[in-house]
Design a binder for these strands. Sequence first.
DNA 1: CAATAATCGAGACGGTACGTCACGTCTTCTT
DNA 2: AAGAAGACGTGACGTACCGTCTCGATTATTG
Lengths: 215, 215, 215, 215
Amino acid sequence: MASKKPTVQPSADCPRTLGRPRSERARCAILNSTLKFFESRQNGYIDLTIEEVAARAAVGKATVYRWWPNKAALVADAFAFGATQKLHFPDTGSLVNDVTQQMQQLVKILRGRRGHVVSVILGAGQSEPMLLTAFRERFIMPRRAEATGTMQRGVARGELPASVDIDHLLDALYGPIYFRFLIRHKELTPQFVESHCRLVLQRVLPVDKSRGKNH
Amino acid sequence: MASKKPTVQPSADCPRTLGRPRSERARCAILNSTLKFFESRQNGYIDLTIEEVAARAAVGKATVYRWWPNKAALVADAFAFGATQKLHFPDTGSLVNDVTQQMQQLVKILRGRRGHVVSVILGAGQSEPMLLTAFRERFIMPRRAEATGTMQRGVARGELPASVDIDHLLDALYGPIYFRFLIRHKELTPQFVESHCRLVLQRVLPVDKSRGKNH
Amino acid sequence: MASKKPTVQPSADCPRTLGRPRSERARCAILNSTLKFFESRQNGYIDLTIEEVAARAAVGKATVYRWWPNKAALVADAFAFGATQKLHFPDTGSLVNDVTQQMQQLVKILRGRRGHVVSVILGAGQSEPMLLTAFRERFIMPRRAEATGTMQRGVARGELPASVDIDHLLDALYGPIYFRFLIRHKELTPQFVESHCRLVLQRVLPVDKSRGKNH
Amino acid sequence: MASKKPTVQPSADCPRTLGRPRSERARCAILNSTLKFFESRQNGYIDLTIEEVAARAAVGKATVYRWWPNKAALVADAFAFGATQKLHFPDTGSLVNDVTQQMQQLVKILRGRRGHVVSVILGAGQSEPMLLTAFRERFIMPRRAEATGTMQRGVARGELPASVDIDHLLDALYGPIYFRFLIRHKELTPQFVESHCRLVLQRVLPVDKSRGKNH
DNA sequence: CAATAATCGAGACGGTACGTCACGTCTTCTT
DNA sequence: AAGAAGACGTGACGTACCGTCTCGATTATTG
């Protein structure tokens, strides 16, 4: 579907010159009104209406449809627009420390205002492949790439065996976080994060150095 | 919430004798038509229309609304109605075996027809607390209770330390499964299940027998 | 349409014996609840609901349908059931007096509680021939027959010419009453009745005796 | 009642410039489809369905509700929209002639296609004050105003006494027409009109010239 | 500077599904 | 057999949003 509606800025080869230029005010107002809707908690993807988004942004409905083909695209863009940039891995020299600290940051986000947007997107994404893909590409994957770097540093330092399956390890680390976040059967506390990091990494660490190696 | 609309069977204190009794045919037709809708894959919770459910079940719309207050309740009931009963833990004498086998069954379900219903419910549940609660109570929790039993057998057998946090352990086991199931960043293969079980359950024993004690 | 549902009481030749006899209580309750509905003023035929009639009469809906084929029949019966019997022509020896007195009684009814039922029936009757016919046969015609008698007495007394068209005369007398009653453009006062009787009868009376005949 | 839904054309104080303008095509299609429904005879006000009106006009249901608050308003407007304009009093120099001719026109309309609309409106109007009022203001009253003019000419010409109660006289003239039209107990023939006009207007003159004065 | 062109706000349009209500029928048990 | 209770399939109700379509007004570039 080569849509005529450019979600991103016009590419350089397209003149993009005639007529009134797109209103930046409108764009921001729309994205913000979308974010605001979710951040109030309680409301879900289904309850989000373009009609209301437009009204709250003091924008014509057509202006929304001109730039976003559907609700999913709008929500994905809104999320990216407001995405927290400050979610990074430190480099303290200790794998466990690095991972734990980053996961604590993640959990803080998930439990905060912005967290609701994440669950809404993941939820709606189950019925809207586009939305899920967008979330994966824009949120999960970049962080995963960085996490891979952290793991490789761990391997280099000898904290992890060279044979470790990093993808598996990341799922083992983050899976239970999202599990509790999405199923809500138990609270997602910092204590849980702490203890979970230890649980998983303890299993992949080479045998405790203090006890001596096995060979 | 003392709703007038009893989704469950009438409690004993209600005479339940006056008037025409509820049609069992209608009830089944409605639930089946709901299930069928999701099992076709592709369609999401938003696309499910009470109007269509009623029509496909050859039932009046009002009959649906008489017994289910909203779409979420209907879907939850439909899921429970068709819920796979054959998802149980064997008792092979080996914790790893028991858990692995049950998780393989679970993954088979998640990857099959019924799996789509699960993702739809979990997805919609992010915006409909009632739906999520229903799914948790009816699907997750019963299995979790059984799993707890299996773990306790493991403790009794000495495969797990008495101090183990079973809730945490279950999240460590199942979280990554659901993570891959919901985020879809990597395929949810039997190999992954196998290897993940090993990862989490290995070295849980207070002392790995094959390596001998340290003192 | 030889309906199985007898609106009138069973004829004598029908045994009418098997099973539980029709409940007189139910019949009265239904008719009364129907009348009561209209007498509150404000509510119209369209707003009358069999559901509500049954509920207010503490009667099963089916019991209403068993005895009355439709709303029109029910309303017609209810009207007949509660029909004022005290609408008769006096015989004072003076045509003008007789007619005036009866018309004043009629107007009193039309302006009272029961009047609303009349307008409702006439109104609904415009779209339900059966209802209009019922009202005509049960209310208009009997009175008209009596009026015809009064007129004939007038002819006998020499108050009216023998050539008078009684049907026309009655329409000239009652038409304007119902006109004001139904169109509501002017109030239907006793003064109007008084003056209208004089207007019409003055035109059909033989030339005023006090002035003597012309030849 | 300062309704937001303007049934009439926008008043001058309203800019009426923003947004897409109201579709004249839709307005006409709706009114015509309403009229057509009644002109088929047989069907009554109750049977008229907004759903069907909209469908037959190839118009969204919401468009009907946007401009007319209820069925009554729609029917009233439809009637006004198609209202016969050619119902006027001639000025032949003779009161009896003028009135007779106009009443014959009226009766022709009442007995024709459009007559059914009139009876439907008057009927439904008995339960819907708004509808009755609309009919009175738009149909009855304008004609009555004109009739008053005709009567006043009669007074000027000496055909009527200056003291005549014109309202009463008009009711005496038109009441019986509508009486027969609504009760349907006798046919509404041109002969009846002819003879009724004569009845009411004869001897209205203070002194019948043809017979000479009495003193 | 005027013409051109795309966007803006506003809001009406033809639709679809909503959740409710009453219809007239039915099925049960009770009287 | 008739009663009350109340669930049934049906279909219209009036509402809310959908995504599209005019409008007049605005804001840039181009001739």
